[in-house]
Design a protein around this nucleic acid. Structure first.
Lengths: 91, 91
DNA sequence: TTTCTATATGCAAATACTGCATATCCAATT
DNA sequence: AATTGGATATGCAGTATTTGCATATAGAAA
């Protein structure tokens, strides 16, 4: 399912126009992103937690040539599913 | 930031009551979950992709006693941040 | 208040990560 | 509705990182 299909579903479920449904959805993702940018984690009970994980610099390898390369430290967004979410998929 | 705080922000940004904002948010998470339950992945351009990852059975260990235990195969929800998301945090 | 979640522990196995080419797929513009 | 530019999936090798187990406690959320 891509974003367009999701928006169509939301439009029906929320009784909004597609344009409004999309704006609503974008507002939510932007709000979450803003919090993450401020180095805050976003905890959604029953769904999961978004947090920014810091990754240290390390030595990697180009699998094509085999040569070693230096990989810089970086940050990425991590999503940790809530307990309730795991249970849904494991029974 | 927890769910309550997020709902307050959404309520302001979307000009909805808190109750409506929460209902809207829940509708979205439920829609995503339903797709995942149907073994479909949810791809949100500019944000990321939710997908169900299957994890193989393996041998684990009880850290308290040290004894080996068999861990069953399981499934969990994975979130893969979109390229745009990584860039936000790495410059 | 009562339920949920993070944390901490040791350790084996699974998985992520890197560059890059190709194939596929999506979003937006025409 | 069709085209196109951009984003993502895949495969590869080897190492770094993560995962997940049991369980109690502390802290936060409903």
């Amino acid at each position: 399912m891509n974003k367009k299909q999701l928006v169509v579903k939301l439009s029906g479920a929320l009784n909004l126009s597609k344009a409004d449904a999309e704006r609503t959805f974008d507002t939510i993702t932007n709000t979450i992103l803003d919090a993450l940018k401020g180095d805050d984690s976003v905890k959604i009970a029953g769904f999961g937690t978004y947090k920014v994980a810091k990754r240290k610099a390390r030595v990697g390898r180009n699998p094509r040539t085999g040569e070693q390369i230096q990989i810089a430290a970086s940050q990425k967004v991590k999503f940790l599913p809530a307990k309730a979410l795991k249970e849904v998929f494991n029974k």
